[in-house]
Nucleic acid binder design. Sequence first.
DNA 1: CGTTAATCGAGACGGTACGTCCTGTCTTCGG
DNA 2: CCGAAGACAGGACGTACCGTCTCGATTAACG
Lengths: 200, 200, 200, 200
Amino acid sequence: MTSTVAGPPRSPGRPRSARADEAIIDAVLDLLAEGNTVEALSIEAIAARAGVGKATIYRRWSGKESLLADAIRTLKGPTPEPAGESVREDLITLLTVVARKGDERALKIMPCIMPEVNRSPEQYRIWQEVISPRREKMREVLRRGIRTGELRADLDVELTLLLLTGPVVMQRTMRWHPGLDDTTLPARVVDAVLAGISAR
Amino acid sequence: MTSTVAGPPRSPGRPRSARADEAIIDAVLDLLAEGNTVEALSIEAIAARAGVGKATIYRRWSGKESLLADAIRTLKGPTPEPAGESVREDLITLLTVVARKGDERALKIMPCIMPEVNRSPEQYRIWQEVISPRREKMREVLRRGIRTGELRADLDVELTLLLLTGPVVMQRTMRWHPGLDDTTLPARVVDAVLAGISAR
Amino acid sequence: MTSTVAGPPRSPGRPRSARADEAIIDAVLDLLAEGNTVEALSIEAIAARAGVGKATIYRRWSGKESLLADAIRTLKGPTPEPAGESVREDLITLLTVVARKGDERALKIMPCIMPEVNRSPEQYRIWQEVISPRREKMREVLRRGIRTGELRADLDVELTLLLLTGPVVMQRTMRWHPGLDDTTLPARVVDAVLAGISAR
Amino acid sequence: MTSTVAGPPRSPGRPRSARADEAIIDAVLDLLAEGNTVEALSIEAIAARAGVGKATIYRRWSGKESLLADAIRTLKGPTPEPAGESVREDLITLLTVVARKGDERALKIMPCIMPEVNRSPEQYRIWQEVISPRREKMREVLRRGIRTGELRADLDVELTLLLLTGPVVMQRTMRWHPGLDDTTLPARVVDAVLAGISAR
DNA sequence: CGTTAATCGAGACGGTACGTCCTGTCTTCGG
DNA sequence: CCGAAGACAGGACGTACCGTCTCGATTAACG
């Protein structure tokens, strides 16, 4: 007797190469880290760098957009799990980018990815899907803060989400303020938003 | 002899057509408003729409980047002048986009311009130049608020700038929160940042 | 010991499917008859039409060239055997195409096969092998005619072979003269070449 | 006053470069002469060899087919003008290929062009157009021969055309008979067809 | 009767060429 | 000299096949 239970529904034909997947994603990240611009990122260059035919890319992704999205997904690593002790700590955790372990390319790449997000509605949709888990976790933390009394009872959750993520994303995207260090920024933004800027 | 007074150092040959300038800028804004995406914005399409030769565009701008910058500059209208009575009112004024009178395309175009800004260092430099006057005015308002005691004495001006502009730009770019109306957003952001979100 | 007589050198493993052979050849002929052009004949299309994997084709033939050659070989049927009574009759017999019984595709396919023959030296070699038996038989008939006195004693056999086959092949290939019926053509060519066109 | 008569209807814009035309045709002939096969003739290779963008080729020709036709047209030189003294001489003249002066590539290229002619109906149409003038002149010579009594009164002109051109084209295409020299072939074919091969 | 081994279908693989589109430059003519 | 028009070299796009390769599943003959 071999097996009476139905195994996984394996599709016929040669299975897709996991090596190719990795090589392609890696080529994307390499080229981004080298060029620091998305303009220099052509499918042909990716295929050449990955040692892969163009068709192998198009078999997996519909275009540059979704390929980029997956590359970033890979880069970002899993959504961090907030400790749940204080609202402040949890928000800082969720605002901090956790790159895939050992990937130094993350910080170089992030700023030049952001601008791509809104170039087309489709790209935007894909990107939303990528970051929505983290955003949902932030909403939960805010709601918990209201319940526990750490935050105002009349808080507008959506507005607050914008107050917290807007500055961090913008700084990451635009690098407008050279004096603001990226590693300490989440903490400073959270503290300022918690406290307000008015004099007492 | 036709003229004895020294005229302005007029170069010989046919002068540049002001009609062409307008037609080109208008074509850019039209195409952006129609397509809602910058990807579909090619120099060839702009030239065709404007009824203009490609060379006429390249004679005036170095490339798509600076053309876009000028188009936005035109769209935005002049930097608003804050009244100077209260920090709150002035910040709201400066965070509100004032479109060129009678141009309904502004709100449709803004979100799809933002992402272009950081695609290359050059484009970023141009964009900074466009918005730096407004940012400088905001700094002045913040410093005045510190002097008048309306704001905390230990306020980090650059961080606060980020706290105010980040959410507004992000919402304009990403349209993440459908419930947040764009016209009332600046006021709500300013109020929230002034007050903070912590329970008292 | 199971067998003392030396059986056929049967290789182990699953034997090749005769159904596949037929399906492939048939798919080739179908596609040729449908498309009336060799350009539309891709290995992938053949495999799909035959319901066969590409590897099954490449296991049997080295490429499109030899597959085509075999398809034609199948189509043509065996070399006809001249009766040997008169040179005229024998030449007409040898110039007439005898298609495999019941295959109406032959006449549609022939013209579009011819051009393929000379696309590469290899293809040419294969083709020569296909038609050489028939050509050799024609040479014999011509030599016999010289011996029997039916033909000139100083006849150049190779030149005459060209005089006879050239017009028939060309008409079949190019269809230049719509008035010349394909079924009566061999007889008319033979008669004209035998008699000459000069006035007496 | 410059000119009141309507000049040639010059189209606006930069005129097409004659240099490009020549370079492209020359590249085609070079690649054919080198490779001796049409399979190795890609548009990309032609563009590279000619130092020309692919678009410059597609602006002038609809595809490989019509480009090839023009290349051959150029190679062949003008249709020869028969002297009109004897049918024999005129036919030999018309059957002999006159290559463009000083172009040694002609003889290498001709054989590998022929097979292309019938790969598709469109290609066939183009080719017919290329050689129809020469064929029409041959018809005239044959009709004149009938009138002058040099040829049989009951001659079938179309059949005779086939008898003459078939062998020459076939030998040129297939190179089946190595002993038959291409330069003397037209004369030998004409003589044989004139005289017939039957014993007297 | 189970092992062995070549076949089958399916389809992914690294490539090459296709024909289209856009870039930024140039070359023509007319204003 | 500027204007439109449009050709130029170059290069990326996404598609279609090429001929090869890897899968799990058949299908015989051998042991």
